[in-house]
């Protein structure tokens, strides 16, 4: 296996791919991941806030029925396998992007798959906020919106950043899968060369690059989270 992996031809080919396609693939992966995470946060953050604030004893209690619907929808979206979800949201993708294939088109299913996940992560971060601090803010006459924007979110920033890191690395993994619907990036290269054409060396390189990207996102995220936490000094 190994001797077939490293023949002069495979090395030659891998070098060519590395030179011509990998730089763009890295860029596409990073750009799809970051953009999808950003959109997922735009949708997921308010949803996560609602999940915590809207509870019966929350700062902004919402009707029980609405909370129930929110929870069910999030759980539903989270239980559909990403591969199936990608295909199921084709109509929506076409509506938004105009096409269902390609790198930009892959952002839509990624966001749909990620925002319920982000909402749950936000929910868990906000639940860590000391309820006594919220009570103190209430005793000072803070409105529900002020408590959300000035207490709950700022107080959970370190935890939100760590969870955003989890989200971005998970979405990076999903984005590799979107190679199947023609989304660009390292995932596409791995699938095209490794799975369809048995060029394992290229696949290996693509996978290693994905691992490196995850490492970079994770360590940068962790560092920012730790730095932002004023409780640790």
């Amino acid at each position: 296996m190994l001797d077939r992996l490293f023949t002069p031809e495979t090395l030659q080919e891998a070098w060519m791919v590395l030179k011509t396609q990998i730089p763009l693939a890295i860029w596409e992966t990073v750009y799809v991941t970051v953009l999808s995470t950003a959109f997922a946060i735009v949708l997921g953050l308010p949803l996560g806030v609602l999940l915590v604030a809207g509870e019966k004893n929350g700062v902004l209690p919402l009707p029980k029925g609405l909370m129930h619907v929110l929870n069910v929808v999030i759980n539903l979206l989270r239980s559909v396998p990403f591969l199936i979800l990608m295909i199921m949201v084709f109509p929506l993708t076409r509506l938004i992007v105009g096409t269902t294939v390609g790198t930009v088109a892959s952002i839509v299913p990624l966001v749909i798959a990620a925002f319920p996940f982000v909402a749950r992560l936000v929910e868990s971060s906000l639940r860590e906020v000391n309820p006594n601090i919220i009570e103190a803010a209430q005793s000072m006459g803070a409105s529900p919106m002020q408590i959300i924007c000035k207490v709950m979110i700022p107080e959970s920033v370190p935890s939100l950043i760590s969870n955003a890191t989890i989200a971005i690395t998970t979405i990076l993994g999903y984005s590799a899968m979107s190679g199947i619907i023609g989304g660009g990036g390292l995932g596409k290269i791995a699938i095209n060369y490794g799975y369809y054409r048995y060029k394992f060396l290229v696949m290996l390189i693509a996978v290693i690059l994905l691992i490196v990207l995850v490492q970079i996102f994770q360590s940068v995220g962790t560092r920012i989270a730790v730095r932002s936490d004023k409780r640790l000094k």
């Binding site: 601090i133 005793s139 803070a142 107080e155």
Partner: peptide, 19 residues
């Protein structure tokens, strides 16, 4: 809320904003 600004409170665990 307006009235609470004239009735303030301190707590056993201080409850400062840690960030």
């Amino acid at each position: 809320r307006e009235k609470r600004r004239s009735i303030t409170m301190i707590f056993q665990q201080f409850n400062l904003l840690m960030q």
